[in-house]
Nucleic acid binder design. Structure first.
Lengths: 154, 154
DNA sequence: AATGTAAATGTAACTCATTTGCATTTGCTC
DNA sequence: GAGCAAATGCAAATGAGTTACATTTACATT
């Protein structure tokens, strides 16, 4: 109840997101977008289904949904070395992820310096002319997992 | 014939690679390692099977092979946004890939500045303590594909 | 060189994620 | 509100990758 105002706001955002791309607004789509928005982390199809508790439609529907969302630039698929793809909302701020290899904790970070990197690569490359996108993921250990296993000093 | 010397040299390297890890030296394994060495690019299980033309053993064998090689640090699995993993030999020089989104051409590059990046991320992060690995891929267009489609200026 | 043993292989069957065909429903435009 | 394309649900298909189990092979030991 306390969040009614916020909920309707995000619903409006989701509506706009869909109509702008000429996608129809359905209950299931709003639920999926809302789940992703509040989770604030990339989720797999199965996580989406679970988190939505039936309100996202069937498995097939969610698969079709994420595919069309990725194709239309609403979602981005990211590979975090789980055995599947995770999906996240594409927002105004570009970011990457650092993943704890023990517990799966994910944190975002910005400022990857990819512009500089791309320029340097293109300067040296004989074959490439243009960089359109980049994928960067860091894999490490979070404080609690590092504490739990101090023997990792090699 | 002209390459007999070279061939035996790489075969020795492969042998060493395997015995060092207490893996048995088999025909199939030498073939897979040799294919990867001469291809000089990451390959999928199916590409390996095709390139080896039967000499790599069956599909199951190659799956088991790449898994054990990855586990023992002989191969690295990389995600180049194809719908599968590709495998490459882990060499002395760490590198990343730039992939042409049109034709699939792959080029390596070094000097990604990940050390600096990791340090910056850890400094800002509340939760993370250590970065062990990083994955970086650039996606772009190569000269020939860029030439073939100049309308990509938007 | 013969031999014992664990590792590697082949075949077939299986699991699981994702996709597709098709009939039905639903959002949205007029 | 009617009509149509898009979205959905169900069932079945596909395809990558794995597992069980019987057989073969590499290689250490003698």
């Amino acid at each position: 109840m306390r969040q009614a105002r916020h909920a309707s706001t995000t619903a409006q955002e989701s509506r706009a997101l869909l109509t702008k791309r000429r996608l129809k607004v359905t209950k299931a789509r709003l639920v999926v977008l809302d789940v992703l928005r509040s989770a604030r982390r990339p989720m797999s199809v199965h996580e989406l289904l679970k988190a939505a508790r039936g309100r996202a439609g069937g498995t097939v529907t969610v698969y079709r949904m994420v595919n069309s969302f990725v194709a239309r630039g609403i979602l981005r698929a990211v590979n975090l070395r789980h055995d599947h793809l995770d999906y996240e909302l594409i927002g105004p701020t570009d970011h990457h992820h650092i993943v704890c290899v023990k517990c799966g904790l994910i944190e975002d970070f910005t400022g990857c310096g990819a512009g500089r990197m791309a320029a340097a690569v293109l300067k040296k490359s004989r074959s490439f002319k243009l960089v359109r996108e980049h994928a960067i993921e860091l894999f490490g250990t979070c404080r609690s997992c590092a504490g739990a296993e101090p023997s990792s000093k090699k």
